[in-house]
Structures are given as structure tokens and as C-alpha cells.
């Protein structure tokens, strides 16, 4: 990944400075640093500016979660109500349902969506012939560019209990599929499988890049030693992917409660509502449709906090177990 400040400092030769560096005040160290590496900071400046303006500055709006929003007073002018909106959310009769549904959808997506691209990358990597490999790769990542609305439209057509391809073919085989779009037990599988179908190819690109960087000498040596294909995959390809896998897993864990809003909302109908109402759709209904901005902010903040905790915990575990981590 990108070099951190510390790493950059190690790699860029520091011009020798007169006098003992340790005894110098911290201000001088910083100005030395800036003096010798201002070009790097300059290049970073637009990115830093964007992050500050669009990620940190808006955070002042978070106080909305602790205030009673008042149109006339603006974002920060409402009365301070403390944790009232959080308590309201925890006391809501829907709270546990929402949490259960959100975790079920996002955790399944996370696990399946994590394993599938790795498997795909390993398979694509085994395909012999440049053109075939390219074709397979392109074919698998193309669905990534279909918009969510269209994907849901396709699901509606394919799974239509009366005319859909899937229920009809199942019917021919004598299997009574029922209404996959409305069934509470089919909602998560339908969501996850279509999600994996759509994004698996795209997500495998990064693994393919990691595999491309494996030293060909390793494969040759393995072949000389008489390793089978499966053994090559097991002992060369997989270990080469582990650092990438862990970084991606940590990043994904940061979104553990982020069951995507659009797709869930589009797939939602009165029949599958008990499993398809998630935190984000509830926040939309309460926040946008009913103008309860403070309450929706509190729900969003709660969501983010849980995600943050997951991110930190996974990172620490990864650090202990495999010595790979984000920070």
C-alpha cells in the first residue's frame, strides 16, 4: 500500500544537519522535514485538502445527533438533548430486527464476497493461454459496471414466479421454487449471490495483480520438484495472496454494518420486509421520508461506530496473528 510518513522518512535520504538532531526542538525537526520533502507534501496537498473538506469538516454536523434539529436555528442551533435519540433508537420495537437483518446481510456478503474473488483469481491464474485468460477475466468483471437498478430489474425478470427463467427451469426439474422475491428465507441468498456475481470479477483483479508478481522461478522450482497443480496453488499462490487478503479483509470489516442501501431498498417488498428492513433503509424512511434528521443522524453515527470498532478489532487481531495490518 502507500507509504506512510514514517516509511517515507526512512527511504528518503536525510541531508546531514549540523548539530545533534536529538537535542533540537520538535519545531525544528518539522521544519527540516518540510524543507527537504516539501515536494511530496505539495503533491499530497490536494488529497489532504479534499479529505479535510469532505471528510473532516462535515463531521461538525454530527452534533445533530445530540441536538433537536430545528429548521430555523440551522444545523448547530437546536436544543441539546444528549443521547435521547440513541435511546429512542435502542428502545424502538424495530431495533433488534434491524440489527439482526443488517448483520445477516452484510456478514454473509462479507464472507462469501471475500472468498469468491480469491477462488476466481486462482482459477483464472490457472487458465492457459493469454487470450482465453483475458476473455475470462473481462467476462467476469463486466457485470461490475451494470447499475444496481438494472441488476435488480434483471432479478425481477429472472425470478418472477410466473414467467421467470429460474422458477420455470426449476419447475421443469420438478422443484417447486415458490416466490424467491418474496420469500423471507430466500432474500439473503438472492441478495448475496447476485452481489457476488456482480462484483466477484472486479474484486479478483487485485488478487490477479498479486499473483502476477509471484516470481516465476518459484513455479519452475516447484515443477522440477514434481509438485502437482493443486500443490502449486496451495504452497505458492495462496501464501502470495495472504497479505493482500488480510488488508482487504480489514478494509471490508470497516463496512460490516453497511448493507448497501440501494439494492436492499429496491429488492424490498411487503412480503420480505421482516428480513429486508435494515438500518440504512430504516434511516432513509425515518430521516428523509419523515424529516427526522436528528434521529437519522444518530442512527448513522451508531452504525459508523460499530463499523469502526470492527475495523480496529480486526486490525489488531491481524497484527497479532499474521503481522500484517493497516497501521
Amino acid at each position: 500500500m502507500a507509504l506512510t510518513l514514517g516509511e517515507t522518512a526512512e527511504k528518503v535520504p536525510v541531508p546531514p544537519v549540523a548539530g545533534g538532531r536529538r537535542r533540537r526542538p520538535p519545531g525544528a525537526v518539522v521544519s527540516d522535514h518540510l524543507r527537504s520533502r516539501w515536494q511530496l507534501w505539495l503533491m499530497l496537498a490536494p488529497a489532504i485538502a479534499l479529505t479535510v473538506v469532505f471528510a473532516y469538516v462535515p463531521m461538525y454536523g454530527l452534533q445533530l445527533a445530540f441536538r433537536e434539529f430545528d429548521f430555523a436555528q440551522g444545523l448547530t442551533g437546536g436544543d441539546w438533548v444528549g443521547l435521547a435519540y440513541f435511546r429512542q433508537f435502542f428502545a424502538s420495537p424495530l431495533f433488534w430486527d434491524l440489527l439482526r437483518n443488517t448483520v445477516a446481510i452484510s456478514l454473509t456478503t462479507l464472507v462469501v464476497g471475500f472468498v469468491a474473488p480469491i477462488a476466481l483469481a486462482l482459477v483464472v491464474n490457472q487458465v492457459v493461454g493469454r487470450r482465453r485468460k483475458r476473455f475470462l477475466q473481462t467476462a467476469t468483471y463486466l457485470p461490475h459496471f451494470i447499475s444496481i437498478v438494472v441488476v435488480v430489474g434483471m432479478l425481477q425478470v429472472f425470478l418472477n414466479p410466473a414467467t421467470g427463467v429460474l422458477p420455470r427451469s426449476l419447475g421443469l426439474l420438478g422443484v417447486e421454487g415458490g416466490n424467491l422475491l418474496g420469500s423471507t428465507s430466500a432474500f439473503v441468498p438472492v441478495y448475496v449471490i447476485s452481489e457476488v456475481w456482480q462484483h466477484c470479477g472486479w474484486n479478483s483483479i487485485i488478487y490477479l495483480a498479486a499473483l502476477a508478481s509471484v516470481d516465476p522461478q518459484l513455479y519452475e522450482a516447484a515443477r522440477v520438484d514434481g509438485a502437482s497443480r493443486a500443490q502449486t496453488v496451495r504452497h505458492i499462490d495462496l501464501p502470495a495472496l495472504v497479505p493482500t487478503m488480510i488488508v482487504l479483509l480489514i478494509l471490508n470489516m470497516g463496512g460490516v454494518l453497511n448493507a448497501g442501501f440501494e439494492k436492499v431498498f429496491l429488492l424490498q417488498n411487503p412480503l420480505n420486509l421482516p428480513v429486508s428492513e435494515v438500518i440504512s433503509t430504516y434511516a432513509y424512511k425515518i430521516g428523509i421520508l419523515s424529516s427526522q434528521f436528528s434521529y437519522a443522524t444518530a442512527i448513522g453515527l451508531f452504525n459508523t461506530l460499530i463499523n469502526f470498532v470492527f475495523l480496529v478489532v480486526t486490525n489488531q487481531v491481524a497484527k497479532r496473528v499474521s503481522n500484517t495490518s493497516l497501521w
Partner: peptide, 11 residues
């Protein structure tokens, strides 16, 4: 209609 609860408006 078997699809009455799950169809979209265009269907």
C-alpha cells in the same frame, strides 16, 4: 397474480 407482492410497477 402470483407475483402481486413482488412485481414492480413496469411489470
Amino acid at each position: 397474480s402470483t407475483n402481486v407482492m413482488t412485481q414492480d410497477y413496469s411489470a
